[in-house]
Design a protein around this nucleic acid. Structure first.
Length: 226
DNA sequence: GACCAGGCACATC
DNA sequence: GATGTGCATGGT
């Protein structure tokens, strides 16, 4: 009987050889990554890319310039990402925190230890665990594993979790299994997104799934939000 | 037209 | 503490 750790490592090797390195996150700068992390909440990345393109085109992809925009202008620019009113607020909350706490200095933020920084991020209204961890891992190169719906769906599909999903528990599964390397954390999560986008949406479409040789739930097992 | 997409906060029971 | 709901565009 393979351990969870064995399975997670085997999945990683399989996904990596199938998809190749993903070199995530899409974004030219840490700041762009952080903005993207907020804009992508419950939203297709393609729409987020449009919003970010708008910000770039207006030469506003900068913490201070962005923070100075009035709500309506900001909301209009990020409109393609959906939920534009709420995301304008959330983005502003984040910007204010980043400026007030770190003087908008990425290096300064990076100097804090990961858990302290995470706890502070989570106090920002609009930043939940996934968003915080995306900012930490992909924006600030901190060692923290990102758990998203794809991750939970994948674990559930392969019998590694049940219905009730505890974020910290899922995160721990990966933390315990993987070498403590930022690059590996980034790559694994990116590969799970590639898997989710290509093969494993809500309905099983696993005929050509690279993980189909591993034990997985069948169509009849499908229920609920996963 | 229905369903989904790299969540989160808040109200209500 | 668990469950439900609003937020909203764009692709399939």
């Amino acid at each position: 009987m393979p351990t969870t750790r064995d399975q997670l490592l085997a999945f990683y090797e399989t996904l990596l050889s199938h998809f190749g390195p993903q070199n995530w996150w899409p974004g030219d700068t840490p700041f762009e990554v952080m903005v993207g992390a907020i804009l992508t909440q419950n939203t297709n990345w393609k729409n987020v890319a449009k919003a970010i393109a708008n910000l770039k085109q207006a030469d506003l992809l900068d913490p201070r310039r962005l923070a100075q925009l009035d709500h309506d202008r900001l909301a209009a620019l990020i409109k393609p990402a959906g939920y534009f009113n709420i995301k304008a607020k959330r983005l502003r909350n984040f910007l204010n925190w980043f400026i007030d706490r770190f003087d908008a200095d990425v290096t300064f933020a990076q100097s804090l230890d990961t858990q302290t920084l995470r706890a502070e991020l989570l106090t920002v209204n609009g930043v939940g665990q996934e968003t915080a961890d995306s900012i930490l891992l992909y924006g600030l190169d901190k060692l923290i594993f990102v758990v998203d719906t794809y991750t939970c769906r994948f674990l559930w599909r392969h019998h590694l979790i049940d219905e009730d999903i505890d974020y910290a528990y899922v995160q721990e599964l990966f933390t315990d299994a993987l070498p403590a390397e930022v690059a590996t954390y980034k790559e694994y999560h990116a590969l799970l997104v590639a898997l989710g986008k290509t093969y494993c949406r809500r309905r099983p479409a696993c005929a050509n799934c690279p993980l189909s040789r591993f034990p997985h739930r069948l169509e009849a097992d499908y229920m609920g939000s996963l």
